[in-house]
Simulated assay, not measured.
Amino acid sequence: MKRIIGHILSPLHHIGFFFFLIVFQPIQWLCYKLGGYKAHKVSVDALNFCLMISYYLVLDIISFKNEQNLPTDRPIIFVANHQSMYDIPPLIYFLRDYHAKFISKIELTKNIPSISFNLKYGGGANIDRSDKKQSLGEIMKLGQRMKDNNWSTVIFPEGTRSKNGKMKEFQIGGIATILKKAPNALIVPIAIENSWKMVEYGLLWLNSFIPLKFTVLTPIEPAGKDILELVKEAENTIKAIAERNLS
Rank of each mutant, 00 (worst) to 15 (best):
A185H: 06
Y98R: 06
P89N: 07
I88T: 08
G122D: 05
N69Q: 15
I155W: 10
S104G: 10
T177N: 10
L119E: 02
L59E: 11
N48D: 06
K120Q: 12
N194E: 13
Q25C: 02
H82A: 07
P113R: 04
H99I: 05
Y98P: 01
K133L: 03
K41F: 04
S135N: 04
I92L: 15
G143M: 05
A125P: 06
G36V: 00
N150V: 01
P89W: 06
I241G: 03
S43L: 02
L12D: 08
L203Q: 09
T177Y: 10
I61S: 11
I61K: 13
I139D: 14
K147R: 15
F209L: 08
L9R: 14
Y32R: 15
D45W: 04
S63A: 03
D73I: 02
N150L: 05
L51K: 13
V42G: 00
G35R: 08
G122E: 07
D45L: 01
A125W: 02
G16I: 01
M1D: 03
M52A: 08
A80L: 08
G224A: 03
T237I: 13
N236W: 01
G36T: 04
P211S: 03
E169Q: 13
L9M: 12
S114L: 02
E235G: 00
E221N: 15
N69Y: 04
R244E: 04
I175P: 12
